[in-house]
Design a protein around this nucleic acid. Structure first.
Lengths: 225, 225
DNA sequence: GTCAAACCTCTTGTATACAAGAAGAATGAA
DNA sequence: TTCATTCTTCTTGTATACAAGAGGTTTGAC
Protein backbone atom coordinates (compact mmCIF):
# COMPACT_ATOMS: atom_id res chain seq x y z
CA UNK A 1 0.00 0.00 0.00
CA UNK A 2 1.68 3.23 -1.18
CA UNK A 3 1.85 5.91 1.47
CA UNK A 4 -1.52 7.59 1.34
CA UNK A 5 -1.60 10.32 3.89
CA UNK A 6 -3.40 13.59 3.46
CA UNK A 7 -2.77 14.10 -0.23
CA UNK A 8 -5.85 15.54 -1.85
CA UNK A 9 -4.84 14.04 -5.19
CA UNK A 10 -5.02 10.54 -3.70
CA UNK A 11 -8.39 11.16 -2.10
CA UNK A 12 -9.74 12.52 -5.35
CA UNK A 13 -8.36 9.53 -7.18
CA UNK A 14 -10.16 7.16 -4.84
CA UNK A 15 -13.42 9.02 -5.15
CA UNK A 16 -13.39 9.21 -8.93
CA UNK A 17 -12.32 5.59 -9.13
CA UNK A 18 -15.29 4.68 -6.98
CA UNK A 19 -17.58 6.69 -9.21
CA UNK A 20 -16.23 4.93 -12.27
CA UNK A 21 -16.44 1.37 -10.98
CA UNK A 22 -19.96 1.87 -9.70
CA UNK A 23 -20.89 2.82 -13.24
CA UNK A 24 -21.73 6.42 -12.45
CA UNK A 25 -20.48 7.64 -15.80
CA UNK A 26 -21.95 6.82 -19.19
CA UNK A 27 -19.86 5.55 -22.04
CA UNK A 28 -18.14 8.37 -23.86
CA UNK A 29 -18.78 10.85 -21.09
CA UNK A 30 -16.22 13.57 -20.59
CA UNK A 31 -15.09 14.35 -17.05
CA UNK A 32 -15.17 18.11 -16.75
CA UNK A 33 -12.13 19.29 -14.82
CA UNK A 34 -13.62 22.56 -13.69
CA UNK A 35 -16.93 21.06 -12.67
CA UNK A 36 -15.35 18.17 -10.77
CA UNK A 37 -12.83 20.46 -9.10
CA UNK A 38 -15.69 22.66 -7.95
CA UNK A 39 -17.69 19.64 -6.83
CA UNK A 40 -14.80 18.36 -4.73
CA UNK A 41 -13.83 21.82 -3.60
CA UNK A 42 -10.27 21.64 -4.88
CA UNK A 43 -8.25 23.12 -7.70
CA UNK A 44 -7.67 21.44 -11.03
CA UNK A 45 -4.11 20.46 -10.14
CA UNK A 46 -4.75 17.45 -7.87
CA UNK A 47 -7.66 16.51 -10.07
CA UNK A 48 -5.46 16.30 -13.14
CA UNK A 49 -2.91 14.24 -11.25
CA UNK A 50 -5.69 11.83 -10.32
CA UNK A 51 -6.68 11.67 -13.98
CA UNK A 52 -3.17 10.64 -14.95
CA UNK A 53 -3.17 7.89 -12.39
CA UNK A 54 -6.59 6.62 -13.39
CA UNK A 55 -5.68 6.69 -17.05
CA UNK A 56 -2.59 4.59 -16.42
CA UNK A 57 -4.80 2.06 -14.62
CA UNK A 58 -7.06 1.97 -17.64
CA UNK A 59 -10.08 3.39 -15.83
CA UNK A 60 -10.31 6.38 -18.09
CA UNK A 61 -8.83 7.63 -21.32
CA UNK A 62 -6.96 10.88 -21.82
CA UNK A 63 -7.14 12.50 -25.22
CA UNK A 64 -4.65 15.26 -25.89
CA UNK A 65 -6.26 18.68 -25.56
CA UNK A 66 -9.70 17.09 -25.53
CA UNK A 67 -9.98 15.85 -22.00
CA UNK A 68 -10.62 12.76 -19.90
CA UNK A 69 -13.23 10.34 -21.19
CA UNK A 70 -14.95 7.26 -19.92
CA UNK A 71 -14.60 4.69 -22.65
CA UNK A 72 -16.43 1.52 -21.84
CA UNK A 73 -14.83 -1.46 -23.56
CA UNK A 74 -16.71 -2.68 -26.56
CA UNK A 75 -18.10 -6.19 -26.40
CA UNK A 76 -15.06 -7.82 -27.94
CA UNK A 77 -12.69 -6.13 -25.55
CA UNK A 78 -14.91 -7.01 -22.62
CA UNK A 79 -14.70 -10.68 -23.55
CA UNK A 80 -10.94 -10.34 -23.93
CA UNK A 81 -10.67 -8.83 -20.48
CA UNK A 82 -12.72 -11.59 -18.89
CA UNK A 83 -10.54 -14.09 -20.70
CA UNK A 84 -7.46 -12.66 -19.00
CA UNK A 85 -9.28 -12.40 -15.68
CA UNK A 86 -10.24 -16.07 -15.92
CA UNK A 87 -6.63 -17.03 -16.47
CA UNK A 88 -5.36 -14.88 -13.61
CA UNK A 89 -7.91 -16.39 -11.27
CA UNK A 90 -7.05 -19.88 -12.47
CA UNK A 91 -3.44 -19.09 -11.73
CA UNK A 92 -4.36 -17.92 -8.25
CA UNK A 93 -6.37 -21.07 -7.67
CA UNK A 94 -3.58 -23.30 -8.90
CA UNK A 95 -1.13 -21.79 -6.47
CA UNK A 96 -3.61 -21.43 -3.64
CA UNK A 97 -4.37 -25.15 -3.77
CA UNK A 98 -0.84 -25.79 -2.56
CA UNK A 99 -0.31 -22.75 -0.39
CA UNK A 100 -3.57 -21.78 1.25
CA UNK A 101 -3.47 -21.72 5.05
CA UNK A 102 -6.10 -23.13 7.36
CA UNK A 103 -7.03 -19.65 8.50
CA UNK A 104 -7.49 -18.60 4.89
CA UNK A 105 -9.67 -21.64 4.23
CA UNK A 106 -11.86 -20.68 7.17
CA UNK A 107 -12.16 -17.11 5.86
CA UNK A 108 -13.02 -18.34 2.39
CA UNK A 109 -15.58 -20.74 3.80
CA UNK A 110 -17.16 -17.91 5.73
CA UNK A 111 -17.57 -15.72 2.66
CA UNK A 112 -19.23 -18.59 0.83
CA UNK A 113 -21.75 -18.96 3.62
CA UNK A 114 -22.27 -15.21 3.78
CA UNK A 115 -22.91 -15.22 0.03
CA UNK A 116 -25.49 -17.95 0.34
CA UNK A 117 -27.18 -16.20 3.23
CA UNK A 118 -27.31 -12.99 1.21
CA UNK A 119 -28.94 -14.80 -1.70
CA UNK A 120 -31.45 -16.37 0.66
CA UNK A 121 -32.36 -12.93 1.98
CA UNK A 122 -32.40 -11.51 -1.53
CA UNK A 123 -29.77 -9.00 -0.47
CA UNK A 124 -27.86 -8.58 -3.70
CA UNK A 125 -25.63 -5.74 -2.50
CA UNK A 126 -24.38 -7.90 0.33
CA UNK A 127 -23.95 -10.75 -2.12
CA UNK A 128 -21.74 -8.62 -4.36
CA UNK A 129 -19.65 -7.52 -1.41
CA UNK A 130 -19.09 -11.03 -0.11
CA UNK A 131 -18.46 -12.38 -3.58
CA UNK A 132 -15.79 -9.75 -4.00
CA UNK A 133 -14.24 -10.74 -0.69
CA UNK A 134 -14.23 -14.37 -1.77
CA UNK A 135 -12.20 -13.55 -4.83
CA UNK A 136 -9.83 -11.23 -3.04
CA UNK A 137 -9.13 -13.88 -0.40
CA UNK A 138 -8.33 -16.25 -3.21
CA UNK A 139 -5.88 -13.78 -4.76
CA UNK A 140 -4.12 -13.46 -1.43
CA UNK A 141 -4.09 -17.22 -0.94
CA UNK A 142 -2.09 -17.60 -4.15
CA UNK A 143 0.95 -16.69 -2.11
CA UNK A 144 2.14 -14.45 -4.94
CA UNK A 145 1.60 -10.88 -3.81
CA UNK A 146 2.31 -9.43 -7.22
CA UNK A 147 -0.22 -11.73 -8.83
CA UNK A 148 -2.69 -10.82 -6.10
CA UNK A 149 -2.31 -7.12 -6.83
CA UNK A 150 -2.66 -7.54 -10.57
CA UNK A 151 -5.72 -9.75 -10.20
CA UNK A 152 -7.30 -7.23 -7.84
CA UNK A 153 -6.58 -4.45 -10.29
CA UNK A 154 -8.30 -6.17 -13.19
CA UNK A 155 -11.10 -7.29 -10.90
CA UNK A 156 -11.75 -3.66 -10.02
CA UNK A 157 -11.66 -2.60 -13.61
CA UNK A 158 -14.25 -5.22 -14.53
CA UNK A 159 -16.51 -4.36 -11.64
CA UNK A 160 -19.03 -2.30 -13.63
CA UNK A 161 -19.52 -5.23 -16.00
CA UNK A 162 -19.57 -8.12 -13.57
CA UNK A 163 -23.09 -7.34 -12.50
CA UNK A 164 -24.24 -7.96 -16.03
CA UNK A 165 -23.13 -11.55 -15.65
CA UNK A 166 -24.82 -12.10 -12.34
CA UNK A 167 -28.06 -10.36 -13.13
CA UNK A 168 -28.95 -13.18 -15.49
CA UNK A 169 -31.65 -15.49 -14.22
CA UNK A 170 -30.38 -18.43 -12.18
CA UNK A 171 -26.79 -17.30 -12.37
CA UNK A 172 -26.39 -16.68 -8.67
CA UNK A 173 -27.19 -20.22 -7.45
CA UNK A 174 -24.97 -21.62 -10.19
CA UNK A 175 -22.22 -19.25 -9.10
CA UNK A 176 -22.59 -20.49 -5.54
CA UNK A 177 -22.24 -24.12 -6.59
CA UNK A 178 -19.02 -23.14 -8.31
CA UNK A 179 -17.74 -21.42 -5.18
CA UNK A 180 -18.30 -24.64 -3.26
CA UNK A 181 -16.55 -26.65 -5.94
CA UNK A 182 -13.58 -24.29 -5.82
CA UNK A 183 -13.49 -24.62 -2.06
CA UNK A 184 -13.52 -28.39 -2.37
CA UNK A 185 -10.65 -28.34 -4.86
CA UNK A 186 -8.61 -26.18 -2.49
CA UNK A 187 -9.40 -28.51 0.38
CA UNK A 188 -8.23 -31.47 -1.64
CA UNK A 189 -5.09 -29.47 -2.51
CA UNK A 190 -5.79 -30.18 -6.17
CA UNK A 191 -4.18 -27.36 -8.18
CA UNK A 192 -5.43 -28.43 -11.58
CA UNK A 193 -9.01 -28.81 -10.42
CA UNK A 194 -8.93 -25.48 -8.62
CA UNK A 195 -7.52 -23.77 -11.71
CA UNK A 196 -10.07 -25.40 -13.99
CA UNK A 197 -12.96 -24.50 -11.69
CA UNK A 198 -11.91 -20.90 -11.49
CA UNK A 199 -11.31 -20.57 -15.20
CA UNK A 200 -14.79 -21.98 -15.73
CA UNK A 201 -16.21 -19.73 -13.03
CA UNK A 202 -14.93 -16.50 -14.52
CA UNK A 203 -14.74 -17.17 -18.24
CA UNK A 204 -17.39 -16.01 -20.64
CA UNK A 205 -18.23 -19.07 -22.66
CA UNK A 206 -21.16 -21.14 -23.86
CA UNK A 207 -24.52 -19.84 -22.70
CA UNK A 208 -22.86 -17.23 -20.59
CA UNK A 209 -21.50 -15.62 -23.72
CA UNK A 210 -25.00 -15.09 -25.06
CA UNK A 211 -26.23 -13.86 -21.69
CA UNK A 212 -23.49 -11.30 -21.48
CA UNK A 213 -24.07 -10.16 -25.03
CA UNK A 214 -27.74 -9.62 -24.31
CA UNK A 215 -26.97 -7.67 -21.14
CA UNK A 216 -24.37 -5.64 -22.95
CA UNK A 217 -26.87 -4.61 -25.60
CA UNK A 218 -29.17 -3.36 -22.88
CA UNK A 219 -26.40 -1.39 -21.28
CA UNK A 220 -24.78 -0.11 -24.45
CA UNK A 221 -27.35 2.57 -25.29
CA UNK A 222 -26.15 4.58 -22.29
CA UNK A 223 -24.04 6.83 -24.47
CA UNK A 224 -23.23 10.41 -23.58
CA UNK A 225 -22.74 13.39 -25.89
CA UNK B 1 7.67 27.64 -23.00
CA UNK B 2 3.99 26.66 -23.12
CA UNK B 3 2.13 24.11 -25.23
CA UNK B 4 3.60 23.52 -28.65
CA UNK B 5 1.93 20.65 -30.49
CA UNK B 6 2.34 17.58 -28.35
CA UNK B 7 1.77 17.25 -24.64
CA UNK B 8 4.93 17.84 -22.68
CA UNK B 9 3.70 15.60 -19.88
CA UNK B 10 3.52 12.66 -22.28
CA UNK B 11 6.97 13.33 -23.66
CA UNK B 12 8.38 13.58 -20.17
CA UNK B 13 6.65 10.37 -19.19
CA UNK B 14 8.22 8.56 -22.10
CA UNK B 15 11.66 9.89 -21.35
CA UNK B 16 11.58 9.06 -17.66
CA UNK B 17 10.11 5.66 -18.43
CA UNK B 18 12.99 5.04 -20.79
CA UNK B 19 15.46 6.10 -18.13
CA UNK B 20 13.87 3.73 -15.63
CA UNK B 21 13.69 0.65 -17.84
CA UNK B 22 17.27 1.09 -18.98
CA UNK B 23 18.24 0.92 -15.34
CA UNK B 24 19.50 4.48 -15.12
CA UNK B 25 18.33 4.88 -11.55
CA UNK B 26 19.62 3.02 -8.53
CA UNK B 27 17.35 1.27 -6.09
CA UNK B 28 15.94 3.69 -3.57
CA UNK B 29 16.91 6.73 -5.59
CA UNK B 30 14.67 9.77 -5.29
CA UNK B 31 13.73 11.58 -8.49
CA UNK B 32 14.23 15.25 -7.79
CA UNK B 33 11.36 17.23 -9.29
CA UNK B 34 13.22 20.52 -9.53
CA UNK B 35 16.35 19.00 -10.94
CA UNK B 36 14.50 16.90 -13.51
CA UNK B 37 12.27 19.82 -14.49
CA UNK B 38 15.37 21.92 -15.04
CA UNK B 39 17.05 19.12 -16.95
CA UNK B 40 14.07 18.76 -19.28
CA UNK B 41 13.51 22.49 -19.46
CA UNK B 42 9.93 22.37 -18.21
CA UNK B 43 8.04 23.25 -15.06
CA UNK B 44 7.21 20.81 -12.31
CA UNK B 45 3.58 20.50 -13.39
CA UNK B 46 3.93 18.15 -16.37
CA UNK B 47 6.68 16.33 -14.54
CA UNK B 48 4.44 15.55 -11.62
CA UNK B 49 1.70 14.37 -13.94
CA UNK B 50 4.21 12.02 -15.52
CA UNK B 51 5.12 10.77 -12.05
CA UNK B 52 1.50 9.90 -11.34
CA UNK B 53 1.23 7.96 -14.53
CA UNK B 54 4.49 6.10 -13.96
CA UNK B 55 3.52 5.29 -10.39
CA UNK B 56 0.23 3.78 -11.52
CA UNK B 57 2.17 1.61 -13.96
CA UNK B 58 4.36 0.45 -11.11
CA UNK B 59 7.53 1.97 -12.51
CA UNK B 60 8.07 4.21 -9.54
CA UNK B 61 6.68 4.71 -6.07
CA UNK B 62 5.19 7.90 -4.70
CA UNK B 63 5.49 8.54 -1.00
CA UNK B 64 3.33 11.29 0.42
CA UNK B 65 5.33 14.47 0.99
CA UNK B 66 8.55 12.57 0.47
CA UNK B 67 8.74 12.27 -3.27
CA UNK B 68 9.06 9.80 -6.12
CA UNK B 69 11.34 6.86 -5.54
CA UNK B 70 12.73 4.05 -7.61
CA UNK B 71 12.04 0.88 -5.67
CA UNK B 72 13.50 -2.13 -7.33
CA UNK B 73 11.54 -5.27 -6.46
CA UNK B 74 13.23 -7.49 -3.94
CA UNK B 75 14.22 -10.93 -5.08
CA UNK B 76 11.01 -12.59 -4.01
CA UNK B 77 8.85 -10.06 -5.79
CA UNK B 78 11.02 -10.35 -8.90
CA UNK B 79 10.41 -14.09 -9.01
CA UNK B 80 6.71 -13.46 -8.49
CA UNK B 81 6.65 -11.04 -11.39
CA UNK B 82 8.42 -13.45 -13.70
CA UNK B 83 5.95 -16.11 -12.63
CA UNK B 84 3.08 -13.95 -13.82
CA UNK B 85 4.97 -12.98 -16.96
CA UNK B 86 5.52 -16.66 -17.77
CA UNK B 87 1.83 -17.35 -17.44
CA UNK B 88 0.82 -14.37 -19.57
CA UNK B 89 3.25 -15.44 -22.29
CA UNK B 90 2.00 -19.01 -22.09
CA UNK B 91 -1.50 -17.67 -22.52
CA UNK B 92 -0.40 -15.67 -25.57
CA UNK B 93 1.27 -18.74 -27.02
CA UNK B 94 -1.76 -20.91 -26.42
CA UNK B 95 -3.99 -18.53 -28.30
CA UNK B 96 -1.44 -17.67 -30.95
CA UNK B 97 -1.10 -21.35 -31.87
CA UNK B 98 -4.67 -21.25 -33.15
CA UNK B 99 -4.86 -17.71 -34.39
CA UNK B 100 -1.46 -16.66 -35.75
CA UNK B 101 -1.53 -15.53 -39.37
CA UNK B 102 0.99 -16.51 -42.02
CA UNK B 103 2.29 -12.97 -42.17
CA UNK B 104 2.81 -13.03 -38.41
CA UNK B 105 4.64 -16.34 -38.66
CA UNK B 106 6.94 -14.83 -41.26
CA UNK B 107 7.60 -11.82 -39.01
CA UNK B 108 8.30 -14.05 -36.03
CA UNK B 109 10.61 -16.22 -38.09
CA UNK B 110 12.48 -13.13 -39.19
CA UNK B 111 13.11 -11.95 -35.63
CA UNK B 112 14.43 -15.37 -34.71
CA UNK B 113 16.92 -15.21 -37.53
CA UNK B 114 17.84 -11.65 -36.65
CA UNK B 115 18.43 -12.76 -33.06
CA UNK B 116 20.70 -15.55 -34.15
CA UNK B 117 22.60 -13.25 -36.48
CA UNK B 118 23.04 -10.77 -33.66
CA UNK B 119 24.44 -13.46 -31.38
CA UNK B 120 26.80 -14.58 -34.13
CA UNK B 121 28.06 -11.02 -34.46
CA UNK B 122 28.22 -10.62 -30.69
CA UNK B 123 25.88 -7.64 -30.98
CA UNK B 124 23.99 -7.95 -27.72
CA UNK B 125 22.08 -4.68 -28.05
CA UNK B 126 20.65 -5.83 -31.35
CA UNK B 127 19.91 -9.19 -29.77
CA UNK B 128 17.90 -7.56 -26.98
CA UNK B 129 15.98 -5.46 -29.49
CA UNK B 130 15.06 -8.41 -31.70
CA UNK B 131 14.26 -10.58 -28.72
CA UNK B 132 11.86 -7.90 -27.55
CA UNK B 133 10.27 -7.76 -30.99
CA UNK B 134 9.86 -11.54 -30.96
CA UNK B 135 7.90 -11.39 -27.75
CA UNK B 136 5.80 -8.43 -28.81
CA UNK B 137 4.86 -10.16 -32.05
CA UNK B 138 3.77 -13.11 -29.99
CA UNK B 139 1.61 -10.93 -27.78
CA UNK B 140 -0.09 -9.51 -30.86
CA UNK B 141 -0.49 -12.96 -32.37
CA UNK B 142 -2.56 -14.01 -29.36
CA UNK B 143 -5.47 -12.24 -31.03
CA UNK B 144 -6.46 -10.79 -27.67
CA UNK B 145 -5.53 -7.12 -27.80
CA UNK B 146 -6.13 -6.59 -24.10
CA UNK B 147 -3.88 -9.50 -23.23
CA UNK B 148 -1.28 -8.14 -25.63
CA UNK B 149 -1.27 -4.76 -23.92
CA UNK B 150 -1.03 -6.24 -20.43
CA UNK B 151 1.77 -8.57 -21.45
CA UNK B 152 3.65 -5.67 -23.04
CA UNK B 153 3.19 -3.61 -19.90
CA UNK B 154 4.68 -6.24 -17.62
CA UNK B 155 7.39 -6.99 -20.18
CA UNK B 156 8.44 -3.35 -20.03
CA UNK B 157 8.40 -3.31 -16.27
CA UNK B 158 10.68 -6.34 -16.16
CA UNK B 159 13.08 -4.97 -18.73
CA UNK B 160 15.76 -3.82 -16.29
CA UNK B 161 15.91 -7.31 -14.83
CA UNK B 162 15.67 -9.41 -17.95
CA UNK B 163 19.27 -8.72 -18.83
CA UNK B 164 20.31 -10.43 -15.65
CA UNK B 165 18.83 -13.62 -16.99
CA UNK B 166 20.49 -13.40 -20.35
CA UNK B 167 23.87 -12.31 -19.16
CA UNK B 168 24.43 -15.74 -17.70
CA UNK B 169 26.87 -17.87 -19.59
CA UNK B 170 25.32 -19.99 -22.32
CA UNK B 171 21.87 -18.58 -21.76
CA UNK B 172 21.60 -16.92 -25.15
CA UNK B 173 22.04 -20.04 -27.32
CA UNK B 174 19.65 -21.90 -25.04
CA UNK B 175 17.17 -19.06 -25.38
CA UNK B 176 17.46 -19.31 -29.16
CA UNK B 177 16.72 -23.02 -29.14
CA UNK B 178 13.61 -22.22 -27.17
CA UNK B 179 12.56 -19.58 -29.68
CA UNK B 180 12.79 -22.18 -32.43
CA UNK B 181 10.80 -24.68 -30.38
CA UNK B 182 8.12 -22.06 -29.80
CA UNK B 183 8.04 -21.33 -33.51
CA UNK B 184 7.66 -25.03 -34.26
CA UNK B 185 4.79 -25.35 -31.81
CA UNK B 186 3.02 -22.42 -33.45
CA UNK B 187 3.60 -23.92 -36.86
CA UNK B 188 2.09 -27.20 -35.72
CA UNK B 189 -0.81 -25.20 -34.29
CA UNK B 190 -0.26 -26.97 -30.98
CA UNK B 191 -1.58 -24.65 -28.24
CA UNK B 192 -0.51 -26.76 -25.28
CA UNK B 193 3.01 -27.18 -26.57
CA UNK B 194 3.33 -23.47 -27.37
CA UNK B 195 2.07 -22.56 -23.91
CA UNK B 196 4.40 -25.01 -22.20
CA UNK B 197 7.38 -23.83 -24.21
CA UNK B 198 6.73 -20.22 -23.39
CA UNK B 199 6.11 -20.88 -19.73
CA UNK B 200 9.39 -22.72 -19.66
CA UNK B 201 11.12 -19.98 -21.65
CA UNK B 202 10.15 -17.16 -19.30
CA UNK B 203 9.83 -18.82 -15.92
CA UNK B 204 12.55 -18.65 -13.33
CA UNK B 205 13.04 -22.23 -12.24
CA UNK B 206 15.69 -24.84 -11.70
CA UNK B 207 19.19 -23.64 -12.52
CA UNK B 208 17.85 -20.37 -13.78
CA UNK B 209 16.62 -19.57 -10.31
CA UNK B 210 20.13 -19.80 -8.94
CA UNK B 211 21.53 -17.83 -11.86
CA UNK B 212 19.09 -15.01 -11.30
CA UNK B 213 19.73 -14.99 -7.58
CA UNK B 214 23.45 -14.65 -8.18
CA UNK B 215 22.97 -11.84 -10.69
CA UNK B 216 20.55 -10.12 -8.36
CA UNK B 217 23.10 -10.11 -5.57
CA UNK B 218 25.56 -8.40 -7.86
CA UNK B 219 23.02 -5.78 -8.84
CA UNK B 220 21.49 -5.28 -5.42
CA UNK B 221 24.32 -3.24 -3.88
CA UNK B 222 23.44 -0.37 -6.22
CA UNK B 223 21.59 1.44 -3.49
CA UNK B 224 21.21 5.20 -3.39
CA UNK B 225 21.02 7.53 -0.39
C1' DG C 1 29.37 14.96 25.68
C1' DT C 2 24.52 13.69 25.01
C1' DC C 3 19.91 14.40 24.38
C1' DA C 4 15.97 17.09 23.22
C1' DA C 5 13.48 20.95 21.45
C1' DA C 6 12.98 24.80 18.59
C1' DC C 7 14.16 26.57 14.19
C1' DC C 8 15.53 26.82 9.57
C1' DT C 9 15.60 25.13 5.01
C1' DC C 10 14.38 22.31 1.35
C1' DT C 11 10.92 19.78 -1.05
C1' DT C 12 6.44 18.55 -1.95
C1' DG C 13 1.43 19.66 -2.51
C1' DT C 14 -2.07 22.89 -4.02
C1' DA C 15 -3.88 27.02 -6.02
C1' DT C 16 -3.92 30.44 -9.43
C1' DA C 17 -2.53 32.76 -13.65
C1' DC C 18 -1.75 32.56 -18.31
C1' DA C 19 -1.16 30.51 -23.09
C1' DA C 20 -2.93 28.01 -26.86
C1' DG C 21 -5.82 24.40 -29.15
C1' DA C 22 -10.50 22.78 -30.23
C1' DA C 23 -15.27 23.07 -30.89
C1' DG C 24 -18.87 25.56 -32.16
C1' DA C 25 -21.17 30.01 -33.66
C1' DA C 26 -21.41 33.69 -36.76
C1' DT C 27 -20.44 35.51 -41.23
C1' DG C 28 -20.13 35.66 -45.98
C1' DA C 29 -20.06 33.74 -50.82
C1' DA C 30 -22.05 30.69 -54.21
C1' DT D 1 -29.98 26.99 -48.56
C1' DT D 2 -25.40 25.19 -48.19
C1' DC D 3 -20.76 25.22 -47.68
C1' DA D 4 -16.52 27.20 -46.28
C1' DT D 5 -14.12 30.50 -43.39
C1' DT D 6 -13.32 33.37 -39.60
C1' DC D 7 -14.02 34.49 -35.03
C1' DT D 8 -15.42 33.66 -30.38
C1' DT D 9 -15.50 31.07 -26.47
C1' DC D 10 -14.50 27.23 -23.72
C1' DT D 11 -11.29 23.85 -22.11
C1' DT D 12 -7.00 21.95 -21.63
C1' DG D 13 -1.89 22.33 -20.86
C1' DT D 14 1.92 24.65 -18.60
C1' DA D 15 4.10 27.91 -15.64
C1' DT D 16 4.42 30.26 -11.46
C1' DA D 17 3.17 31.53 -6.82
C1' DC D 18 2.15 30.16 -2.39
C1' DA D 19 1.38 26.92 1.67
C1' DA D 20 2.89 23.41 4.57
C1' DG D 21 5.21 19.15 6.07
C1' DA D 22 9.75 16.59 6.62
C1' DG D 23 14.43 16.47 7.80
C1' DG D 24 18.38 18.26 9.27
C1' DT D 25 20.83 21.72 12.20
C1' DT D 26 21.65 24.58 15.81
C1' DT D 27 21.10 25.73 20.43
C1' DG D 28 20.35 24.97 25.10
C1' DA D 29 19.86 22.14 29.35
C1' DC D 30 21.63 18.47 32.00
Amino acid sequence: MPAMGTRIADTIRERIEQMIVTGEFADGERLDEVKLAEQFGVSRTPLREAFQSLAASGLLTLEARRGAFIRHPDFVELVEMFEVMAELEAMCGFRAARRVSEQQMRDIGRTIEACEAAIARGDSDEYYRENETFHHLLYEASGNSFLAREAARLHKRLKPYRRMQLRVNGRMPQSMREHRAIYAALEKADPKAAAAMLRQHVAIQGERFNDLMASYRQMAPRKAG
